[in-house]
Design a protein around this nucleic acid. Sequence first.
RNA 1: GGAGGGAUGACAGAGCGGCCGAAUGUACCGGUCUUGAAAACCGGCGUGGGCUUGCCCACCGUGGGUUCAAAUCCCACUCCCUCCGCCA
Length: 435
Amino acid sequence: MIDLAQLRREPEFVKTALARRGVDFSTMDEIIALDVEHRRLLQEAEGLRAEVKEFSRQVGEARKNKESAKADELAAKSRNLGDHEKLATQQLDAVAEELREKLLLIPNLPAPDVPDGQDENDNVETRRWWVGMDEGATFPTYAEYQRVPHWDIGIELGILDLESGAKLAGSMFPLYRGAGARLVRALGFYALNSHIADYEEIRPPSFALTETMMSTGHLPKSVDDMYAIERDDLWAIPTAEVPLTSMNRGEILDEEQLPVRLTAQTACFRREAGAAGRDTRGLLRVHEFDKVELFAYCTPDQADAAHADILARAEALLQVLGLTYRVLDLCTGDLGTSSARTVDLEVYSPGVDRWLEVSSVSWFRDFQARRANVRYRTAAGTTAFVHTVNGSALAWARIWAALVETYRQPDGSVKLPDVLAPYMGDQLVITKKAS
RNA sequence: GGAGGGAUGACAGAGCGGCCGAAUGUACCGGUCUUGAAAACCGGCGUGGGCUUGCCCACCGUGGGUUCAAAUCCCACUCCCUCCGCCA
């Protein structure tokens, strides 16, 4: 949620910033008008209420003094005023609700240094990394035997069974088997272990209340991308960001506690309604995947460092897995609703010859904290909204694809990076027989 | 799924229709005392909103209702605790 007080204080600044991401001035003008109306009605209703309260007090006094005629008279006056108050409050509530609904749909202000752009094509690539780059190696060339898509490798080695997944839950619900299943488990285990010295490990519920989904900004805007369990008013979480951001909902933290750093691996559920028919093959885009998320509540001063740390951790994992990747600075047109700034990491997957998004590291300023009402007490004793920062490290379905394609051997087997040995039962080579 | 009990400020815990935004204690902050500290004593000490900045309004799990007036009465829901049933 944007700061209404700021909109009131510097409307032109806010409007200009939001225009960069496609919110037109008229929308903001409507909100400003509603705000003025809201405050007018608020004053009216509160004034009436104050009068009612005063009369009520006098009724009580009269009753105590056994002046029952006077008390009845005052009560009648108060009742009359109360009717007016009720009416004014109804109008007030209606305007407040309209204002709230409009406000919930307004995205966050982009940070000043976010590049302008329409869509993902305007994202700015800031750098690339590949094995041996620091030693002067040129961008890797990939052999013919690495140019096989992971869905073919999966079938060949018996480690990915999309047909069974489709049979059970429909298309785009992958089913891994044998060494393929173990690989998913290994990646999550390895990644979590690399974070838990600095981030508290959380295992949250996989479903969340509507209120929880509102806090992160996934609702109301992205309803169609969420799986709903209507009977119980629950939603399947699209990312661990949802439960983690709401862990301290409605609370006031001590400044010394910050930054609060959390990590969790969860299944992530996405309907991908807007992307129907796109990237339907293999693991490029799936309805359910496992992801390790890193998250922090922090002060505004700590936000930069927190963001940098999460990005560094995601990159470190990619590097240790030996995957080629690039770093993108998301443009205003591709920024998520709640984000002020986002950096994406995309791995290069040679079999499909595509860059695949595997991490998104975002800084939300106080946008989510305002919705979730998470504050902290400053040293001066005042309260302020925390900043939230989060990022994936990493999303495993696409990593899985990039790994099997990158590490496919001339004989068709796949030889996984050494770091995974402890988690793969020392079985790093996946062959047809072994799986 | 059934029966009962509960939800009040950072915490503990009163209040059960009329200056109650809420006693009291603890914690916390400031002061007196002290070489210093502790103790003792004095004062302060919830969150948010509006505007004429001093006042007003809201908030006692959540949402409705009754009343001139609700933390207090009524209804529904949520969560926690105890017991019974079922169960991985």
